[in-house]
Write a protein that binds this DNA or RNA. Structure first.
Lengths: 216, 216
DNA sequence: GCCGAACCGTAACGTACGGTACGGCTCGCC
DNA sequence: GGCGAGCCGTACCGTACGTTACGGTTCGGC
């Protein structure tokens, strides 16, 4: 398993001022990508470089703190499955799908993922792990209970929740994230996202919906 | 539509020596990611920096040439659908899925995509477009005729080939590519890839296989 | 055998940027 | 009112690297 404990609450004693600085860094990250310089961050945040280095150690530390700071904010909404029937299950799934599509198509997410991908493999920091843990893995942690509840209520039929989740993930995200990361202009309007979420949900239910006498 | 014409044959008059240099650059790219320096490439390729600049203009030119050089090599195998029945269609799809998984999990593809993602949004070059065109879009171009053939043979039922393709793409790739790009250690053995390809194919056929009286 | 073109190896230049140092300001505290 | 901590602004340092320049070598053509 990659990554030690990147999902522990990461707002570890950040002062308001520090959060403001990280917000500035984040904005700059969205605008300039990995090109941001310490000087630019200091300028944008109206703080001195000395402070930056005192608070965050070095450039990587600042980057990591920024990514964690944002990552801790983007958790997809919790949806719990009380009184589950097929309609509410479908609604929950659709909600997850829609939220997820909105997240991965947001400027912030794209910028963060770009930086994290760029840094992955250089071993220097673990931005990739942070992003992964707060993105894909956090989503799984939220969604799996819903799937389990659906199975328990006899609405879903699957052997392995992980596999089912990954299928759902694939049906929702398809080629969207990689295309956006690679710079493809993919206009995702509210409407398209809604349609895609509904389609993905229907397809998932077609594959995993419990129908008497069904394999796979 | 993003990207002008990155899929025109890109081996445009490259001498053997130049190809060798690009291969060296490619190896370095896999090893060091975007950290590669002109000096390092020159060293690895046993050529002078002057030559590098003469041939490729500048660093971005070298990077672009390297990416194009590799991209032009990784096309997934052509599969044409002659005498189509359900078994051969499934076999074709499975083959595509398997090939694609092998591609996106290869060191080279990961390195290339990382660099391209890192450069996307900086506007400076269009590595992202090149990778996209030779990856996801090339795959679509190869696969769609198969899907159309399947539909024509009454084996598949879909309204829009693009949508069907994207669903297949999602079922095959799921979270694999983004996890790999973000540095997750995801062991993809020959066996898992085979299994995933089969599963994705079965799921796709379950969704789009022509059965009398089926909507969606 | 001579010439020029292409290329190698290396040295040199300029700059951008990470990181550090320091003087001055503000402000809570005694 | 004095004092020290924390921070701002800025100047400064060192280095890595993109880019250029140049002397030396190889080699095909005459």
């Amino acid at each position: 398993m990659l990554l030690a404990n990147a999902d522990i609450d990461t707002s570890e004693a950040l002062t308001e001022r520090q959060k403001a600085v990280l917000d500035a860094a984040l904005r700059l990250l969205v605008e300039e990508g990995d090109h941001l310089t310490m000087t630019a961050v200091a300028g944008r945040a109206s703080c001195s470089k000395e402070t930056l280095y005192k608070w965050f150690g070095d450039r990587d530390g600042l980057l990591t703190a920024t990514v964690q700071w944002q990552a801790s904010k983007v958790r997809v909404a919790q949806v719990d499955g009380k009184g589950l029937d097929l309609a509410s299950l479908a609604a929950s799934l659709e909600r997850f799908a829609s939220d997820w599509l909105k997240v991965i198509s947001s400027d912030t997410s794209i910028a963060l993922n770009r930086v994290a991908v760029g840094h992955a493999g250089s071993g220097k920091d673990n931005l990739g792990a942070v992003v992964l843990e707060n993105g894909r893995f956090a989503l799984a942690k939220r969604l799996k209970p819903v799937l389990e509840a659906g199975r328990h209520a006899g609405l879903l039929d699957f052997a392995d929740a992980e596999t089912a989740f990954r299928t759902f993930f694939g049906l929702v995200a398809r080629d969207v994230q990689i295309r956006l990361l690679l710079g493809d202009r993919l206009e995702l309007t509210e409407a398209t996202i809604g349609g895609d979420a509904a389609r993905a949900t229907q397809q998932f239910l077609a594959l995993y919906g419990a129908k008497p006498g069904r394999g796979l």
